[in-house]
Design a protein around this nucleic acid. Structure first.
Lengths: 192, 192
DNA sequence: CTCGGATGTCTAGCGGTGCTAGGATCATGC
DNA sequence: GCATGATCCTAGCACCGCTAGACATCCGAG
């Protein structure tokens, strides 16, 4: 059965190549530039091959989103691990979140702006997304304040970060006040 | 010169018709359904007529956004006028903002999600946008807290509302906790 | 070793998109 | 009454996501 195994492995490799290429192309030129034709050309296969791995472009976006969710969760956990006080942890989390959004705009879009066909905040939500939210709760839960559910507080804090991230990137907020916005958010929202 | 005046008037009427139709179509079926062909058919002209009024689809989105900005500013001012305490005003503002986003999703998208070719937070920002931001400052400026610039505080509060609005609409936040999220945001961010 | 069938991949094409060149038609001023 | 200029439409460009059907290639059975 070694032949079949090799084929399966090659198929999995190619699927990873598709996702990586889509992500790369999206980061370089934006998601609008990720067309099935260009993507096919870059992986040196014809268009229909894409559809033997994914139902369509939407699912490719979803795959990039899942990959990004894992990385984002890791980035946030890594950033908070180094901080010693709750306040520092929350600030580090906020900075890590916004930095990830800024450095990986296409991945961030795939996660939170575009339709990748993924379910959020539900039973059938993919593990990677649940885990990313869990990473938020780990740090934010301890500053939710009395009588406030950690989940609810985390949602609100997350939404605020998301608003700052998206409005900044679409140049609806000036980038120069970024740090002061973070300080204000942390100082006001978190109960220390 | 009455003939020319009539023609100008008719032209302005047709431009308003285009914007209104685009908005209507977008609210009914989403912006993806607003194609130049469909739009042209609805106004009972051919496609090129659209391009004699607007440079392209982007500018049509921008026109809808400007119209929406004025309405949104009016809605927020109307909501806050009825409240008597700063706390009530902020809460009323937040509710009005989120309600507008929920009831006019296509307009909200044109304003804050899509690219309408408009400048934000700059010198050449259209008056309607500046005024909508001014409407936010009017209420939020009085609860910014000591040593915090009203503009900065307003940006942060706005970003938070924007995050809640967008994540709720893309079903990344559950709608049932909407009111509790508002309360939390108002109680924590505003200094009363 | 040969051959039928399954598997994999490609070419070509469908209906759609935003946008535009160029020709027809109409009203206007001489 | 007619040339001129404004106005509008037909037709088409290059591109999009997606798919049907032809073709090649490789596999396992005889």
């Amino acid at each position: 059965m070694s032949v079949q195994e090799r084929k399966q492995r090659e198929r999995a490799d190619r699927e990873r190549l598709i996702v990586a290429t889509a992500r790369e192309l999206a980061e370089q030129q934006g998601w609008d530039a990720v067309t099935t034709r260009r993507l096919a050309e870059r992986i040196e296969y014809s268009q229909p091959v894409l559809y033997s791995h994914f139902r369509g472009k939407r699912e490719i976006i979803g795959a990039v989103a899942l990959e990004g969710a894992s990385e984002m969760a890791a980035a946030m956990r890594s950033a908070t691990a180094a901080a010693s006080t709750p306040r520092d942890r929350v600030a580090a989390l906020a900075r890590a979140y916004l930095e990830f959004a800024e450095r990986n705009p296409a991945v961030y879009d795939a996660l939170f702006q575009l339709d990748g066909g993924l379910a959020y905040a539900q039973e059938d939500t993919p593990e990677q997304l649940k885990d990313a939210f869990a990473a938020l709760i780990e740090t934010l839960g301890e500053v939710a304040g009395d009588g406030v559910e950690p989940e609810l507080f985390t949602e609100v804090f997350w939404a605020s970060l998301h608003g700052v991230a998206t409005l900044t990137r679409s140049r609806r907020l000036l980038p120069e006040d970024a740090e002061r916005r973070i300080e204000l958010l942390v100082d006001r929202l978190a109960v220390l």
